[in-house]
Nucleic acid binder design. Structure first.
Length: 645
DNA sequence: CTGGGGAGGGGGCCC
DNA sequence: CGGGCCCCCTCCCCA
């Protein structure tokens, strides 16, 4: 298909070489300057290339680095084909079901205003005898029932959507965009996304960066309706991996890419402050050891995120051979490579149900455990043979002190877990009897004395003490202690705002924001300042308002306590699991409390806690506490609320 | 110009 | 795992 173009050049290989380089750069993310969001899939590309190929995309990339495409016009799988076409001049074969996919590509290419691809699709359809039929009313691109309703999550950041110039009417019907369904099916079941889309797993496929970041996760209508005979040979008929609730699709492959990106970043360094250094897409020298392809596609994802070796992307024969090799699970013949450690979903979270054996000498092989932590911590195991850093307790070796430290930390975390489990059996054991906090929150963190109502929350909290946050953002590298926080963060990268205001159409990333926002329309101001009576629609603004009162120099400020008392208020609120602003709220209810000896007794744990945090003696802390009426009020309220009558 | 309020948005983290 | 809430930063508007 590209022969005509190539023949016109004095150096016929020029365009080919150029495209090959560009596509290679794309697969590495090198110099990619735009992200295209299609439904819940994410693609990276170069603005110049898109602008040179698509009039529509050209109009978008001028203003935005993040493009949200109308998923009713182009699905992730179709866009993958189109992106591949843009970078290779080839439209991957779509058999079986090829005509329908071709129709979808034609529709999308028309929508995106890519005349060359439109012509190519028409040509192919004519060759297969389908195009006339198509013109007779065959709708080539149909989206699944429920797709529209299920995915109102992406706010288009463009306006004036160009209409397709040569497009049969789009009508909602049964999905032909099967791979889109695969994405959702995988995502909704917590398994990694299948990255291939409509492509056979050739190496020139567009970077499969599928993310399900929708809040209202689609139900996977396409997958449910997908006739199995449309699946490509070698394609899994179900989501590639069994569903793992502890590993949503965002994590597996992308974390692997992240791991690669962190290969040479300073160990232990916090990437949040320098996102560029942590950018997993940044250009780095090609890796000398590409991983072995994996049938489930996650390896492809990793390969893209990391360093895809130069390959004969445009050579169909080679690609077919490559496909055969991949299907057979063989290594590429030219450069047999060691297998990259599997990025199984449970690898990503060493504290899950399988974690008991990771630090134990009876668990899986040291290599397995190491792989787990290598992935977890973002290291590569190239130097497994040089495990000079040995963990004394378990005897495992690690190639770097950082990995050893992380491993030791895992030991500690495991011990914490068992300790918490032991305390679960006898929550008040060895604590001098149940105090106030113990009654309410028997599960105490051994690192900071915070306490919780249930062990799962304690486990969750304990992650905040880990040196290595286990959930990195694959776009900016920022790490999080909770997976949900990370995925929420990812949504902010992608501009996904699932929650829309019915009144004004404004969209929000979180339900809570929408709830707050709706008070603008309703006029409701439920938060009232106890000092001046001012009312606020948002609690945070009341809080900032109260700070203004507290800082008032005229003496009428109600919260004129020294800073240390506020610090203690916060610490105590943490200790009791109460909210800090409750202290300010309760300032007026304090006097009676000091006369209650039982309540005073309850202050001693607080005094101890405060003393530990402020470096005071316990007696001194108790004395300071006695001068901080809001702390007493807090305790009093708590006692009133929870003590038996 | 400045202070205060309104509001958008991100991260932490408990439930 | 998502919801909900809290805290913070920030920007904008306005008196």
């Amino acid at each position: 298909e590209t022969s005509a173009m190539l023949d016109a050049m004095e150096v016929p290989s020029h365009s080919r070489q150029l495209l090959l380089q560009l596509n290679t750069q794309r697969t590495k993310g090198f110099l990619c300057d735009v992200i295209i969001v299609v439904q819940n899939a994410l693609f990276r590309a170069h603005k110049n290339i898109l602008a040179a190929s698509s009039a529509y995309l050209k109009s978008l990339v001028v203003h935005d680095n993040l493009l949200n495409l109308d998923h009713e016009m182009v699905s992730p799988g179709i866009f993958r084909l189109i992106l591949d076409f843009i970078y290779t001049g080839r439209l991957a074969d779509c058999e079986p079901g090829g005509e329908q996919s071709l129709g979808a590509v034609l529709a999308a290419a028309s929508y995106l205003q890519i005349p060359g691809l439109v012509a190519l699709c028409k040509k192919k359809l004519k060759r297969s005898g389908k195009y006339c039929h198509l013109r007779g009313g065959y709708a080539p691109y149909k989206l699944g029932r429920g797709l529209r309703a299920a995915t109102p999550v992406i706010q288009a950041c463009y306006s004036g959507t160009p209409r397709p110039v040569d497009l049969p009417p789009v009508e909602p019907a049964a999905p032909l965009n099967t791979q889109c369904g695969e994405l959702y099916a995988s995502a909704s079941q917590g398994a990694p996304l299948h990255p291939h889309g409509l492509c056979p797993p050739e190496r020139h496929c567009s970077p499969p960066c599928g993310l399900d970041l929708s809040k209202k996760s689609p139900t996977g209508p396409s997958a449910q309706l997908l006739p199995t005979d449309r699946l490509l040979p070698g394609e899994p008929r179900e989501p590639s991996l069994p569903p793992r609730h502890d590993s949503p699709p965002v994590s597996a492959g992308l974390l692997a890419g992240h791991a690669a990106a962190y290969k040479d970043s300073p160990p232990g360094g916090e990437p949040g402050g320098h996102p560029h250094a942590a950018d997993p897409f940044r250009g780095t020298p090609p890796c000398a050891e590409p991983p072995l392809p994996r049938a489930d596609g996650r390896e492809l994802m990793y390969r893209w995120m990391k360093h895809e070796p130069l390959g004969p992307y445009l050579d169909e024969a080679e690609a077919e051979k490559e496909l055969e090799r991949e299907e057979k699970g063989e290594s590429p013949p030219a450069a047999p490579q060691p297998r990259y450690p599997s990025v199984e979903s449970n690898d990503l979270e060493p504290d899950n149900s399988t974690s008991e054996d990771t630090g134990s000498s009876e668990g899986p092989s040291p290599g397995d455990a190491l792989d787990r932590y290598c992935n977890h911590l973002g290291y590569e195991p190239e130097s497994l043979g040089d495990n000079l850093y040995v963990c004394i307790p378990c005897g495992k070796g690690f190639p770097s002190s950082e990995q050893l430290n992380a491993h030791v930390e895992a030991h500690n975390e495991e011990e914490l877990y068992h300790k918490a489990a032991a305390e679960q059996a006898v929550p008040f054991l060895d604590k001098g009897g149940p105090g106030l906090g113990d009654i309410l929150r028997p599960y105490r963190c051994s690192s900071c004395d915070k306490s919780y109502k249930d062990p799962a929350t304690l486990r969750q909290h304990e992650k905040t003490h880990w040196l290595t946050r286990p959930y990195p953002c694959t776009i900016c590298g920022k790490k999080f202690t909770q997976r949900g926080t990370m995925t929420r963060h990812m949504r902010s990268h992608l501009g996904l705002k699932p929650f829309a205001c019915d009144a004004c159409g404004m969209r929000f990333t979180r339900q809570y924001r929408l709830t707050e926002h709706m008070r603008i329309h309703s006029g409701e101001k439920p938060y009232e300042c106890q000092v001046c009576g001012g009312k606020f629609a948002q609690q945070r603004n009341l809080i900032s308002h109260m700070k203004m009162h507290a800082a008032g120099p005229d003496g009428k400020a109600k919260l004129d306590f020294p800073d240390s008392v506020y610090a203690m208020a916060r610490l105590t609120a943490d200790q009791l699991g109460l909210k800090q602003e409750k202290a300010a709220e309760l300032l007026s209810h304090t006097s009676h409390f000091l006369s209650d000896p039982k309540a005073m007794e309850s202050l001693y744990p607080l005094a101890k806690f405060t003393a530990e945090h402020l470096g005071l003696s316990q007696d001194k802390a108790a004395e300071v506490l006695a001068q901080a009426p809001h702390l007493h009020a807090e305790a009093a309220r708590t006692i009133e609320r929870y003590s038996p009558p």
